[in-house]
Amino acid sequence: MTQPPKHLELTKVDIDFPTPTGPFKALKNVNLTINKGEFVSLIGHSGCGKSTVLNIVAGLYQATKGGCLLDGKEVNEPGPERAVVFQNHSLLPWLTAYENVELAVKQVFGKQKSKAEVKEWIEHNLSLVHMDHAMHKRPDEISGGMKQRVGIARALAMEPTVLLMDEPFGALDALTRAHLQDSLMEIQKDLNNTVIMITHDVDEAVLLSDRIVMMTNGPAATVGEILDIDLPRPRDRIALADDPKYNHYRHEVLTFLYEKQRKPDENSTAKTEEKNVAQDLQEDKADSEDQAA
């Protein structure tokens, strides 16, 4: 197999945030390569710098060291080719769903598309997320799930090279979330965008991703492990529930999150356990040496 061309590449990314008590190192030596059309999830405990990674790719943050290349070009400012779906939808509350998408479409395609084409494109994107029935409602008139759909439509309407999603379904109830996950898989199958999604939800990560990037706890967080999810698409959540491979992947992620990387406030207990494990290992070694002798 030939080496696929590098699409999105984070190289040796460090980021320091200035605080009154000196710089805070949020990320240290983050390396990540993402291929075109790949769906990658970032998972990790809160405060581990997942959002920071996403914001660096988005161009909203600048890496202190290292950098981010998209198709060979350095990312140093935000742009519509790296559209973001924000955690809390971030729709403009004074505009209707249609107008929210329109703002993005006009900004990105205002000069290339005619008025009719713009209208058609907006409506097409809203129907992709099944929002065509409520496109002239304002955000406060629709439910949380619908708002997030509009947020996704707005991002998709920019025809991004990379779609960045910051916990897109985090604030939704389980049923709505499942529904939107299915929609997202459908859309991704059709458009074949590169997607980077942040999530807390292990099932979501395994169900949606081609690869799961697991991050270590901050400060100075970095990529801990990368898990390839080799499940055929289209994926069906019900069929997968009994799939041993699926459950194995879930188990891997859970092990990483709850054994290898405990929450920061559980660190003290984790450390003593580590010591115990180290002692066990030494004893094992001693035993085998005894046997050899």
Binding site: G79, P80, V84, L92, Q107
Partner: peptide
């Protein structure tokens, strides 16, 4: 969040003021 939206869309200064800042 709205400022981020404006940045991702690369709104010009004037558009940022009229479309985001003033209404909000």
């Amino acid at each position: 969040d709205l400022q981020n939206v404006s940045q991702v869309l690369r709104l010009s200064w004037l558009a940022h003021v009229t479309k985001i800042v003033l209404p909000s």
